[in-house]
């Protein structure tokens, strides 16, 4: 179904880091490019490789180095392009805190330490999501969430809320409209609703034993990738009601459970236009799944499975909203492999 297309060359190799591949995939409605990726970003320790997807693109490769004034070492934990306000920005979570760059990664627009642990200990920001392009939510190593709002017509952000919900470090955050799902190192997932000023916790999904590495909210689904190699899809339709002051007791229902990979699932992505799910794993496989609903029962079917020989995959993303192309990055190599139907 998918065939190996071209290989992109990074200037430095990819670090071992979950979801170590970000794509600048402008949403279909806003840009002319109609949801086709223009750039990808891969982390190498405290550096971010930003390269164009096609050679004909005018945009040049960029190399962003995240560092502080002192000689304290920095590790970049996550990179994500987000629609925020009226602009696309490059959001970076690192051991130095939260940094927001312009789309090209040239100018630093905003930064915040987001620290809750002792200053001399290992702290980092991980988990980045936007709510309706108006609000930015981030997690950190202390399990604390922070919400920042966009000031009118500016990319400058203002602090809005801080919430403690996790006992362990946040690994990923997913969002849809004003709903939010956050996951941590121990595998616990919290579901939240943002009422305009405050994050309200509405449900919790207990751990299955291993860490959650990525999660995604779309349609009525919450797809979760686990370190054990499992993909679990939960029903997220019940978490869409407003908060009335009492703590709801709705249990989030498990819809499907798939033993998908032989090792840690390091990356996951969703092609919203096709309900395709991408998972990349340390077992050297990248797998594409289709999620669908038949007679009110959700199913997940394997569409394609590709092996990149002897590569511990650490990142994978669709290159468009229809899921007809994707690319994967791997630890210790500077190659990004692209696939196309």
């Amino acid at each position: 179904m998918y065939e190996r297309e071209n290989t992109l060359l990074l200037s430095t190799s990819a670090s071992a880091l979950c979801n170590n591949l970000a794509v600048n995939r402008p949403s279909g409605k806003s840009g002319k490019s109609g949801g086709n990726a223009t750039n990808i970003a891969v982390v190498h320790q405290n550096n971010i490789n930003v390269i164009p997807v096609t050679e004909s693109d005018k945009n040049k490769p960029m190399f962003i180095t995240v560092q502080s004034n002192s000689s304290v070492l920095c590790e970049v934990m996550q990179v994500l392009w987000c629609d925020l306000g009226f602009e696309v920005v490059l959001v970076v979570g690192s051991t130095l805190g939260l940094h927001i760059y312009d789309r090209e990664g040239v100018d630093l627009l905003f930064s915040h330490p987001c620290i809750d642990g002792p200053e001399d200990e290992y702290n980092f920001v991980k988990g980045i999501a936007t709510l309706n392009n108006e609000v930015l939510c981030t997690g950190n190593s202390s399990g604390v969430l922070r919400v920042f709002g966009v000031l009118d017509d500016e990319t400058c952000l203002s602090f809005m809320d801080r919430k403690e919900g996790h006992m362990d470090a946040i690994t990923d955050i997913a969002s849809i409209d004003y709903r939010l799902a956050t996951a941590d190192d121990s595998g616990v997932i919290c579901l939240w609703y943002f009422n305009g000023t405050e994050l309200l916790q509405i449900a919790t999904i207990e751990t299955f034993g291993s860490a959650v590495t990525s999660l995604f909210l779309w349609k009525d689904w919450l797809a979760v990738a686990y370190g054990s190699g499992h993909i679990r899809i939960f029903d997220s339709s019940k978490i869409n009601y407003t908060y009335d002051g009492s703590r709801p007791v709705t249990a989030v229902r498990l819809l499907t459970e798939t033993a998908a990979h032989a090792r840690y699932i390091t990356a996951m992505d969703v092609a919203l236009g096709a309900d395709y799910l991408l998972t990349a794993s340390e077992d050297s496989y990248v797998k594409i799944w289709r999620v669908c609903k038949n007679n009110n029962v959700t199913e997940i079917n394997l569409l394609c499975s590709s092996q990149i020989n002897d590569q511990m995959l650490v990142g994978g993303r669709f290159l468009n909203n229809n899921g007809t192309a994707f690319c994967v990055s791997a630890y210790d190599t500077n190659l990004v492999h692209c696939f196309k139907t």
């Binding site: 798939t258 029962v297 959700t298 997940i300």
Partner: peptide, 13 residues
């Protein structure tokens, strides 16, 4: 204690 890849369990309500 883990599971060999290759199976999906589909749950109902």
């Amino acid at each position: 204690g883990n599971e060999i890849p290759g199976t999906t369990r589909v749950y109902q309500a």
